[in-house]
Design a protein around this nucleic acid. Structure first.
Length: 609
RNA sequence: UGCCUGAUGGUGUAAUGGUAGCACAGGUGACUUUGACUCACCCAGUCAUGGUUCGAAUCCAUGUCGGGCAGCCA
């Protein structure tokens, strides 16, 4: 059990999760195999982080915090063609937001501009890049403009990586290959057919060294040559068939500019980046399982002097009714199915944050889902439940009417104001209240009145009674319609004896309804989001764009109780009987309120339509 | 017709040779100035077939089904 001091999570204590990776870590700790457990979260800055990454972040940072370890944030930025600084910034923001108050004390960053230092380990030359001591940035909370620490990045290891590649050549374990990309593919064979050795495989070490140096010296165009590992072209593991280590790309890098025209590939860069940072447990998703042999081969071939990291794989998160793929999310953004990466309908961390999902809810959800090697699809209901669990105890209750219908209380004078005490949150141990004004004209929800009520309808109907929450019981005397038959007004009488303090407060009626005073309310744009896809597995047929829900967003002008004019983005609200809402941090402005519906309340009543 | 990997209620998971449990979803009822919350009860599972064992979800064999692997992406 761990006590969370700065977290705003609904539950101060959470049971420590257990899964097969944590079991491995626990055993390594028990056997004292490492001085400190060090994990890493290694996003590529080619898109925004999504809820699947949240699972990885919580796993890696979770393991770090449970073992008094560290988790490095490292950008895996070895492909300049797809990466951008804007993504680096967005990812950094999202990670900081997700771990704030929970694992930020375990966040591993490096001193600005630093690259691995040449050291000597057991008499052998070595490189290592230390994380900034937690104390240095802990008090500082590692904000985006923190000048004392920055995330790690593979691109800051390009010098060392080049040296390691040279070392591999000298050991006869890598060669420069002149095969074109298509010939390379042809030589590689297929999973059930062995590959063939490249005709350039037997080049001398001296020639390889010379050619590799000239690759770096910009002598060759893109794709003309590559550096390849010399392993086994007949291996049943495709990744062991002389995989590429370096390719030529005359493309500027967002971090290193024009300094390099050769860039290492994932398999070569990742394991060594892990090594340079002193990572102990390198946790990734299932599709990298086949790469583990190459990960281990690379580290072993270099005969590195320090303990090498180990890779473990887990199944990535799949969520019903959503797509969790950076590539596909990018299409939705580029093709304008949504307004941007941070559209509240998207499962991106930015989108979820904007929608009003607390970081604690995301953490609660992903830890609840568990970590296994089984490919599964998690029901969105599990996510929704986690969100409500966090919001219910923390959200301020407010009255708001989304689709108003005017109601006149005929026995209240036009200038009369009746103050009512409304509870801010009934879940609090000692609930507080605020005043809301009741006047002659109020708005109630259109759905809360039915001229021809369906069976078991508890709400207002002609001649029926209902309680205006926190106020009194009213009776519907008359339904006023315009020439087209549209209901324009409900004329009711208020039973003032049922107000708080009145003789009949305890009188029961079946229904209670939310409302706002027409003369004491403020307008707001409210965005009602629904799931982005109409089917639970949108990409099952590879046509996810055809399943986009055309009604995923409905915008209404709502009537809010007056106190909401001072709403804050830091606060979560429950509009009573409707759901949880958050002020939109992007589109709200002074005098213009925009709320996003985070999630509806559970609704057990399903009227037949 | 290769290699790797996996399979526990509708869904997600736990049980590491010894009573198959938890959560979500669904259902019924209680409570309710939120048809929310809360509470009670119900529903429902070890992929199959053999084997080892006093005892198998767990170990072994075979099969079935699913996922991954042939980017100079990560």
């Amino acid at each position: 059990m761990s006590v969370e001091t700065t977290d705003t999570s609904a539950t101060a204590t959470t049971p420590t999760p257990s899964d097969f990776i944590r079991s491995i870590v626990a055993q390594d700790v028990a056997e004292k195999r490492y001085a400190k457990i060090v994990t890493r979260f290694p996003p590529e800055p080619n898109g925004y982080l999504h809820i699947g990454h949240a699972k990885s972040i919580c796993l890696n940072f979770g393991i770090a915090r449970e073992n008094d370890g560290r988790c490095n944030l490292r950008f895996d930025d070895t492909n300049p063609a797809k990466e951008e600084l804007a993504y680096v910034e967005a990812i950094t923001t999202d990670v900081n937001w997700l771990i704030a108050g929970w694992a930020d004390h375990c966040l591993g960053l490096k001193a600005p501009g630093t690259t691995p230092a040449a050291i000597t380990t057991n008499g052998k030359p070595d490189f290592h890049l230390a994380a900034v001591a937690p104390a240095t940035f802990h008090s500082h909370a590692a904000t985006a403009d923190d000048e004392r620490a920055e995330p790690f990045s593979a691109s800051s290891y390009f010098d060392q990586l080049y040296l390691y590649a040279t070392e591999l050549i000298q050991r006869g374990k890598a060669f420069v290959c002149d095969l074109s990309p298509s010939d390379t593919e042809a030589y590689r064979g297929s999973p059930d057919r062995p590959g063939k050795d490249s005709p350039f495989r037997q080049r001398s070490i001296a020639e390889n060294l010379d050619l590799f140096a000239r690759m770096k010296a910009r002598e060759f165009p893109d794709g003309a040559r590559s550096l390849r590992a010399k392993i086994d072209n007949t291996s049943s593991n495709m990744w062991l068939r002389d995989p590429l280590l370096y390719r030529i790309r005359h493309t500027a890098h967002h971090h290193t500019g024009d300094q390099w025209c050769i860039y290492p590939l994932y398999d070569f860069a990742h394991c060594l980046s892990d090594y340079l940072e002193g990572i102990t447990h390198s946790i990734c998703t299932l599709e990298f399982d086949a790469h583990r042999a190459l990960y281990d081969w690379t580290l072993a071939s270099l005969e590195l002097p320090r303990t090498v990291p180990h890779q473990y794989e887990f199944a990535k998160l799949n969520l019903g009714y959503t797509i969790v793929s950076k590539r596909k999310l990018l299409q939705l953004v580029q093709e304008k199915f949504v307004t941007g990466w941070d559209d509240p309908r998207l499962p991106t961390i930015s989108g979820l944050r904007r929608r009003g999902i607390p970081a604690s809810a995301l953490r609660r959800f992903v830890t609840g889902v568990g970590v296994t090697k089984f490919d599964s699809v998690t029901d969105v209901a599990v996510f929704d439940h986690a969100v409500r669990e966090e919001l219910n105890p923390t959200a301020l209750r407010r009255l708001a009417v989304l689709k108003p219908i005017k109601l006149t209380l005929t026995n209240i004078a036009p200038d009369e104001i009746l103050e009512c005490d409304a509870t801010n949150n009934p879940q609090d141990e000692t609930p507080t209240t605020r005043k809301v004004a009741l006047s002659r004209e109020v708005y109630i929800e259109q759905d809360d009145f039915a001229e021809v009520p369906p069976p078991k309808y508890f709400r207002l109907k002609p001649g029926g009674e209902v309680r205006l929450k926190y106020a009194c019981i009213i009776k519907c005397d008359e339904v006023v319609k315009d020439a087209t038959g549209q209901i324009t007004e409900l004329r009711c009488t208020a039973d003032l004896t049922t107000r708080a303090g009145g003789p009949n407060v305890d009188r029961k009626v079946k229904g209670t309804v939310h409302w706002v005073s027409a003369t004491h309310c403020t307008d707001a744009e409210v965005r009602l989001y629904d799931r982005l896809f109409t089917v639970s597995e949108p990409d099952a047929d590879g046509e996810f764009k055809k399943h986009v829900n055309p009604h995923s967003l409905e915008v209404v002008t709502a009537k809010l109780e007056a106190s909401l004019a001072a709403a804050s983005t830091a606060q979560r609200y429950q509009f009573e009987r409707l759901g949880y809402f958050a002020l939109d941090a992007k589109d709200s402005a002074a005098g213009r309120l925009v709320f996003n519906r985070t999630i509806t309340l559970k609704d057990a009543w399903v009227p037949k339509k």
